[in-house]
Design a protein around this nucleic acid. Sequence first.
DNA 1: CGTGATTACGTTTATCGTAATTATA
DNA 2: TATAATTACGATAAACGTAATCACG
Lengths: 308, 308
Amino acid sequence: MKLQQLRYVCEIVNAGFNLSRAARVLHASQPGVSRYVHLLEEELGLPLFVRTKNRLVSLTPAGEAIAEAAKRALREVESVQHIASDFRGGDVGNLIIATAPGHARYSLPPVVERYVKRYPGVRLRIRQGNSAQVVEWVMNKEADCFIATGPTEVNRDLTLLPCHDIHAVILAPSAHPLGKKRRITLHDVCAFPIITYNAEFTFYSHIMRAFHSAGLQPDILLSASDAELMKTYVRAGLGIAIVAHTAQGKGKDRGMRTIDAAHLFGTSVVHIGVRRGVHLGKHLVHFVEMFAPRLELGAQQRTKSAGA
Amino acid sequence: MKLQQLRYVCEIVNAGFNLSRAARVLHASQPGVSRYVHLLEEELGLPLFVRTKNRLVSLTPAGEAIAEAAKRALREVESVQHIASDFRGGDVGNLIIATAPGHARYSLPPVVERYVKRYPGVRLRIRQGNSAQVVEWVMNKEADCFIATGPTEVNRDLTLLPCHDIHAVILAPSAHPLGKKRRITLHDVCAFPIITYNAEFTFYSHIMRAFHSAGLQPDILLSASDAELMKTYVRAGLGIAIVAHTAQGKGKDRGMRTIDAAHLFGTSVVHIGVRRGVHLGKHLVHFVEMFAPRLELGAQQRTKSAGA
DNA sequence: CGTGATTACGTTTATCGTAATTATA
DNA sequence: TATAATTACGATAAACGTAATCACG
């Protein structure tokens, strides 16, 4: 059995059982592909494709199972090449990180700063998008990993690495009545117009779930993807903002006060998501080691390839 | 890149980096293997093996990662062949089931009877052993699956399919004082000499854990792997037996009574264990469908190969 | 020197394209 | 008749073994 034969089979399948089209994609001649497939079928002792007279129509049951296994085999072979090119290159290359604007703005900058200093040859790119987008990008190989606040609805082609916890805080104008209470409740919060993240962010659903399960209907005055924008509206006295604790400036948020709200909304976990079962590139591993040292991803890599 | 090259790499590794030995195993000439490996290294652009002058010594870091991926790729290719031979054969073949004597004797017979009637061409073999042995047999491909009472200490090369629950019953002589109580306690049970399974069976640990966590030290008079043997001793009045509920005869256990003990020892789950990530043979799927129809393994197979 | 890796060389075989053929819509 | 699969044939290349060479213990 040859790798090419497996490639041919897979390509025929996703060319919609059109040998000619598959041959074009594979830079091979139509007869070559035809013969090679026949050879494989002969070797395996059964037909992989259903043929009506002179046309490929579909996979046989055996063909389906075999095409699946073939795809997995090819992925591993591809992975051999990726591993090689990963080791081959020195500390140069590309690293694309997909994440929500919140992480990009608050958690990432210090890490990125250290990273580009340590690995100046790596071209680091950060793509911003909502939860669904960043997942999509990683699956399509348009990004090497995503950083997202879970639990993300995620399929079995991705692996999530829990990095650290995140909790909500409330930003209110300095003289706001909420600031006087010792321990606020969801009910207290609900009394005021609320500014928070857009609905496509996981944090939004997280917050809303807390309100709804308490039987409350908050008055969402305004939603945005940018915490700095929210702060502007808070300063203007339009309402109070519920944001991730990472979004609070270190004493730089003048004109407002921060009220802890961890007990109201619980904690979420920030995850790094990568494609499952493939070799994690050296640059990605280095980055993750900086972003979440407790994962000890580098140490794992040394003993076993492609983390859990 | 050729599959053979990957085979060569893997074989060199488990021949202890001895090219000559690897070549012999692979039915190839030493020079052929040498050149082919060099070709691969050239293609990948980096050395896979550490060479001291004229001798292979070990894998480079890249080599280790690549050897792992290569092994996975080869396993998938092998799996293609297995799938083919699985579909090729009609309803003939072999099926080896490893299990503890208890399952072999009580749960399996009716299933086996139906199975051999439906698939008379399949040579069914049942190997009996303790928990560790049956796991070992499946991993070494000396058996297609095992049936065991969990939770088995199991590694990530195996998949466990939960089949059904099992609970303990107490077998006591007809006139035994325990039979008069309405709801017995662990303490009650401890007052009498106990007959149960050998220590190497999971059920034994399960029972003992219940006693120990209640701070009790039961008097184990006798342990055996065969429930029928235990019954003999119970009839002789030597003690009471704690056995799986599946071991009780349907009214045929003369001279003794059955006392329910589910509330004392809880329930365990009977699992079928198979090698992870490989195609499940048609015969095995058929058997599992009969043994545990609620798994709907056949339906899963039709859509996706090798169940979770 | 013996064992084991590499290089050189030649034969055999397989791979794959062009051209011709057949079959279907 | 156009499109798509199969068969026939031939040139090129690769796969792989034998023999020779080299390198170390």
